[in-house]
Every structure is written in structure tokens, then in C-alpha cells.
């Protein structure tokens, strides 16, 4: 494998990692503050993608569409929190899993109802079309680089928000002792809605940005959601830093595994057997990584509160 291809795959892995981070950051924040497992987080990703496609078709501007997607997903998240999620905080995990599973069914069917059964397609905005040269002679899509940039910006922004602002102070306080901050006069119900909407907005942003690279369709959120779970398990539940590092790890390992394993195995097994074994192994690789990490660090790489 040439070094140019290697760099390209590394960047692809980074781009996948950044998308996973946007999902995992919201999930882990919601779990850390409210103690809630949200299976319907993938539906918010889907809402973002569909809202982006709809606004882009209506206005013709991808950037307006991105803003629209953020607002739509955050609004859907706030609504979800107020109508359903709010009743689940004190409940056991079974109720949370079931209710959010029910929300997936509702969101998927409702989206299919609104937008029809066919996938939608989004164009890469004109400014971000084209490629840049990579060291080694190949070229790389500017749009994917832009996604990586946005992801890094969000990671820094979220870090600053949580560690430097008043809202972040309340979020951290809510993580460690919710009765205490309620007693200090903070409106904890509104805080929870804001945190949930923030997580939803990040998921929606991820869905909207992936729109031009894939087709926008019902069910697109579920594979990403499960990868985000793997990220959280690896990184440690409730940890923003763990989510970032876990996401990059999963993104890079998954992408590199798919690119490299068939080639590595062909020396051992012969080309055709290596292609099938390699692709099967590659699709299991991140789960194997997760198992190894769990055996040595059962609470993830960066357990919250340590």
C-alpha cells in the first residue's frame, strides 16, 4: 500500500471519528448529567439530515440548511425531552431503553410519512467542492477536510463551554449533585432541557454534514448510534475527553482495518480468501478492540469522576 493511500485512509478515519464524536459527545453529556440512556439519539441525527435536505432544496443554500438542521434537531430534542424523556429520569434503565426505542419507531415512521420512502440527496456546497493535493501525489476532498475542521472546532467549543461558562458550571454541578444545585436555586428542569437540546443539536449537525457524502434516508442514524455506543464504552461514560479520543480511535481503526486487512491477509491466505476473511474481520475489528479495552479497563479509558 502506497503512502498516499495510507494518508488518505487516515484522513477518512479522522473524518469518521469526528462524526462519531459529535454523536458520542451528546450521548455522554446526557448520560453524565441526567443518567439517561437515549437510543433515539440516532433519530435526532436523522432529523438533522432530513431538515438539512429540506432547507437546502427550499433555499438553495447549504449553509442556511446547516443552521436549519441545527435548529430543527435541537427543537426536536427539546420537544422530546419535555414530552417524554422528562418522565424517565427517575426510572430504571429498562423503561428508558423501551421508551426511547418506541421513539425510534415513531420518528422513523413519521419521517417516512413526511418525506416518502425514497432517499434524498444533497450536493456539496460550491465553495467546498474540489480537492487539495496530499503528500504522496493523491488528492483529497475539501469537504471532508471541512468536516474534520468543524468537528475539532466543536470539540474545543464544547470544552470551553463546559469548563469556562456559567452554563458549563451548572452542567458540571448537575453531574455531581443534582439536589444541591436545585437547592441553590438553579432551575434544574430547564437545565436538563437545555442539555438535551444541546446534545440533540450536535447529533443533528453530524447528520446534516454527512448528508452530501451519503444518501439521506430513514434508519441512517442507527449504525452511527451503535458505533457511538462503542465509542462511549471505550472512552468511559460521561467523559467528554473520552468521547473525543474514543471516537478518533474507533474511526481510524475501523477505516484502516477495512483498507489494510485484506492486503495484510493475502500473504497468508491467498487473494480471494483474504478478501472475504479480511472484510469480515474488518467489520468486527472495532468490537474486538472494545473487548480488549474492557478486559483491561472495565470502566473505559477515561472513567468519569476519576
Amino acid at each position: 500500500m502506497s503512502s498516499a493511500l495510507l494518508v488518505e485512509q487516515l484522513l477518512n478515519g479522522l473524518q469518521l471519528g469526528v462524526m462519531l464524536y459529535l454523536m458520542a459527545a451528546g450521548l455522554t453529556l446526557i448520560f453524565g448529567v441526567m443518567g439517561l440512556i437515549n437510543l433515539a439519539h440516532g433519530s435526532l441525527y436523522m432529523v438533522g439530515a432530513f431538515a438539512c435536505a429540506a432547507v437546502a432544496a427550499w433555499t438553495g443554500s447549504f449553509f442556511l440548511a446547516l443552521i436549519g438542521a441545527l435548529i430543527a434537531a435541537a427543537a426536536a430534542g427539546a420537544l422530546m425531552e419535555i414530552l417524554v424523556i422528562r418522565r424517565l429520569y427517575g426510572r430504571d434503565h429498562l423503561d428508558q431503553v423501551l421508551a426511547t426505542f418506541a421513539l425510534i419507531l415513531v420518528f422513523s415512521e413519521a419521517t417516512r410519512w413526511l418525506f416518502g420512502p425514497f432517499p434524498l440527496y444533497l450536493d456539496i456546497p460550491a465553495i467546498l467542492q474540489g480537492t487539495v493535493p496530499l503528500p504522496g501525489g493523491s488528492r483529497y476532498q475539501i469537504y471532508r477536510l471541512a468536516i474534520i475542521g468543524v468537528g475539532i472546532a466543536v470539540a474545543i467549543g464544547l470544552y470551553l463551554l463546559i469548563s469556562r461558562t456559567r452554563l458549563g458550571m451548572r452542567i458540571r454541578a448537575g453531574e455531581s449533585d443534582r439536589e444541591m444545585i436545585a437547592a441553590l436555586g438553579v432551575d434544574i428542569r430547564t437545565l436538563y432541557t437545555v442539555v438535551f437540546a444541546l446534545g440533540a443539536g450536535l447529533a443533528g449537525l453530524a447528520g446534516a454534514m454527512i448528508g452530501p457524502l451519503q444518501s439521506v434516508q430513514v434508519g441512517m442514524g442507527e449504525p452511527v448510534l451503535i458505533l457511538a455506543f462503542v465509542v462511549i464504552v471505550i472512552g468511559g461514560i460521561g467523559s467528554n475527553r473520552g468521547a473525543l479520543i474514543g471516537a478518533i480511535l474507533v474511526g481510524v481503526v475501523d477505516t484502516m482495518g477495512r483498507a489494510l486487512l485484506p492486503g495484510v491477509l493475502s500473504g497468508l491466505l491467498g487473494p480471494s480468501a483474504a478478501a472475504t476473511t479480511g472484510s469480515s474481520l474488518a467489520s468486527m475489528l472495532i468490537y474486538l478492540v472494545m473487548v480488549v479495552i474492557l478486559v483491561f479497563r472495565p470502566r473505559g479509558l477515561f472513567p468519569a469522576g476519576s
Binding site: 431503553v97 464504552v233 461514560i237 469480515s280
Partner: peptide
Amino acid sequence: VYFIMITLAFAQMIYYFAISW
């Protein structure tokens, strides 16, 4: 929550194995 997510991940691993084999 760990148990929920990890059992889900293992099932998904077998699912992807069945798809790609």
C-alpha cells in the same frame, strides 16, 4: 448502561459478521 451498550455491540458484531461472510 454499560451492560446494555456492550451486549448491543456484541450482537452488532455478529450481525456484521453474518452480513460480510
